[in-house]
Each structure stands twice: as C-alpha cells, then as structure tokens.
Amino acid sequence: MTEQTLLERPLAVPAYSARTSTARRRLNGLLPYAFVIPPALYLLVFMFWPLGKQIYLSLTRTRLANPNRSTFIGLRNYERLLDNPDFYTTLKITLIYSVMAVIVGVAVGLVAALALNRPFPGRTLVRGILLFGWAVPNVAAALVWLWIFNERSGILNTIVTGLGLERVSWLTSTEMALPSILLVTVWQVSPFVMLVMLAALQSVPEEVKEAAVVDGADKLNVFKSVTLPHILPTLQLVSLLVMVWSIRRFDIIYLLTGGGPVGSTSTLIVKLRQVAFENHDLGLSSAYGVVGLMLALSVAAIHALFNHRRQKMSSR
C-alpha cells in the first residue's frame, strides 16, 4: 500500500461512513442495473423481440399483404420445407458457398499473411492495398464487380476473348455464378483473415523458432512444428467467423445475382427474402431463415466446444 492511500483513507471514510447506511448499500446493489438496463432493453426491443416474432412467424400461415394476421399451424412450414426439393438445393448451396468461402478465403488470407510477415520494400503500402476488399462498402464492391463480370464489355471477357476463348457468362450461367460470387467473397474476407493471422504470426516466439533451427529443423519443419501449432487457435477462430458471416451474407449475393440464375446462388438468407417478397409467404420465408440461424449457431457451438476442450487440455 502506498503512502498516499494511507493518508487519504482517514479523510475520505469518516466523512461519508455515517450516511453509508443499509439504504445506501441497497442502492449500490441496484447500481449495475442502472447501467445494464438501457442497452439490454434496447437489444430486447430492436433485436430479440423481432427475432422472436420472426421465429414465431415460422410456426404460422402469414401472408405479406397482411403481416399482422397469422394462423398458428405448428411445424407445418417445416414439413413443407422438408417436402420441397428447393429447400435441399438451397441448403446445399449455402453449405457449398460457406465451406468454400472458408477454405479459399482462409487459405488466401493465410498465404497473404505469411507473405507479408517477412520484410520487403513497400510492405506497408502492399498491406494497405490488400485491405481494400475488406474496407470497400458492399454496394460499391457489387457495382465494380458487376462491371468486371459484364458479359459484353467487362474486362474479364475482354481478356478471355483476347486469348481466343469463348465469352463466359460469369454471373448468368448456373455453372459460373457461384464460383464468381465466391471470388468476390474471397476478395472481401481474405484481407480480414490476413490481418488476424498477421497478428498471430507476429506473436510466435522467435526463441522457439531459433531453437528449432539450431536443432537442425528446416523452414518447412519450423512452420509445421512451431508456427502452425501456435497460430492454430486463431486459424480456427477466423474460420468460424468467415463461416458464420458467409451463412448470414446477403448484400453482395443479392446485388450480384439476386440468387439466380435459376436459384444457383440462392443461399438460405437470400431465399428468405425471395419467399417473403416474391411469394408473399412470410411463414415459409421465416422457416428458411430459422434454418439459416440454426446453421450459424451450430457452427458457433462447435467452435465453443473445441475451445472448451482445448482449454481443458492445456490446463491439465
């Protein structure tokens, strides 16, 4: 204890201790709630009440024209989903899209982080340029990529025809639309992966790496036995984030293809909007959304489970 606090205590305490009665202490017990209630109430009203209502809608027959008149029909909308081949296609597309976004996005981001982790002239500038995809707003990104992908005058097809090949329908053919959207997604998410992994790489202890080299390990071995184990938890976390973001992503898919052609880029969340606003079926639309939410939550739960197990292992 320092001299200062020893001197201050006797001055401060007697002045108020007489009034620090039970009433005051009880008031102090309520104090946290004065802080917590405004933000908590806000989230309840503008986030969780609508969410609850949306989940309830999935148990009803509700039309867009009359959203406040619902008939409770239990799990019928989910039965309709399971009977509908469209649902399985949507689910499959969502899984392919988000798993591929994780694999390619994390791979590109990790490679970029490794490349930027060793010094070279102009590194700060390159690092800035690599972050563009992450910083540019979705709508602006969609506009420029639409132009890049433009079938008649876009730069990609100018290059393709220049090479003597046939024009590619980047966004309007069922084979190419999903890969094209994945390309844009990778452009958007890999910079974030790079930033996070760069921070993780810089925290790898140099001494351990040096010790491994002294012991005769080559670069690949150092990476496998020192660097990789150290960055693995971060890699797992960032994969989880990219997966969850991909499941909930809407703007860029909607703006680039609207879910088409013939539903080939229609993830659960894009389908949710389509069924609500084009088929006017709010009940079924909600069911799609709830499945999307469950998917995202189960990814998060799997991550939490792994995390828990790892913490238990390392504490042993």
């Binding site: 009440w49 909930r248 949710l272 909007r273 609500a276």
Partner: peptide
C-alpha cells in the same frame, strides 16, 4: 450471428 434479413419483416 443473426442475419439482418431475419429480423427485417418484424
């Protein structure tokens, strides 16, 4: 985790 689109209608 909640998608924007999921609370849009309510």
């Amino acid at each position: 985790v909640v998608p924007e689109a999921l609370i849009l209608v309510p």
